[in-house]
């Protein structure tokens, strides 16, 4: 009877957690004009807490004047310096801040029918598709760590987390996955 109305066995814990491929990352700060002229390869979103993605590039608006730019170009061919130079050149006339944070953080991909349920062990946000639609991206809390959570699909989330917090996030997700599988 317990948990009767939750997704059936196999579905419940049904999610995978894996590390995303390395990527170049930048934090861009400045006005809407800066965002418009960033020349990053994907339009920067104007709405707060939203992501724009066009593989392999993505831009997440995390604050009113703050974008996290992710360039997940093919491994071994990550154009960090070239991208930075290209954007600095495009933005030379506008006050802004562009900082390379490629190695500051890493990404975990949580995917599957049980993704939201698994994340909700530690994330205090309503992760129903109505409340947290596809394309939403925001900084939030993961138990005792801070993360950026981006919903890439109905059952697909990307977690961006500072590298030293990543083992904690991974271990906690693994513990929750195991519990959910046992419950199912």
């Amino acid at each position: 009877m317990s948990d009767a109305a939750l997704p059936a066995a196999g579905m419940l814990g049904g999610c995978t957690v894996r590390k995303a491929d390395p990527a170049a990352r930048f934090v861009l700060r400045g006005t809407a004009e800066v965002a418009a002229g960033a020349s990053f390869g994907v339009a920067l979103p104007s709405r707060l807490n939203r992501a724009e993605a066009s593989d392999p590039r993505a831009a997440l608006k995390l604050g009113p004047d703050e974008w996290l730019l992710i360039a997940a170009d093919a491994a071994g061919d990550i154009p960090t310096a070239a991208l930075q130079a290209q954007m600095e050149a495009a933005l030379a006339a506008l006050p802004h801040s562009l900082v390379d944070v490629s190695h500051r953080q890493m990404a975990l991909l949580v995917e599957g029918p049980g993704a939201a349920l698994t994340l909700n062990a530690a994330v205090p946000l309503d992760l129903s598709v109505e409340a947290f639609p596809v394309g939403m991206a925001t900084r939030t809390i993961f138990e005792k760590a801070e993360i950026v959570l981006w919903r890439q699909g109905a059952e697909a989330f990307r977690i961006e987390v500072w590298r030293s917090f990543a083992p904690y996030v991974q271990a906690l997700l693994a513990a929750v996955q195991a519990e959910n599988e046992a419950a199912a």
Binding site: V27, R29, G30, D65, P95, H96, S97, V99, D100, V101, S102, H103, R104, Q105, W162, R163, S164
Partner: peptide
Amino acid sequence: LKVWLTSTTEQW
């Protein structure tokens, strides 16, 4: 002030 702050503790 036109200045922005970015944590880079774990970048390096």
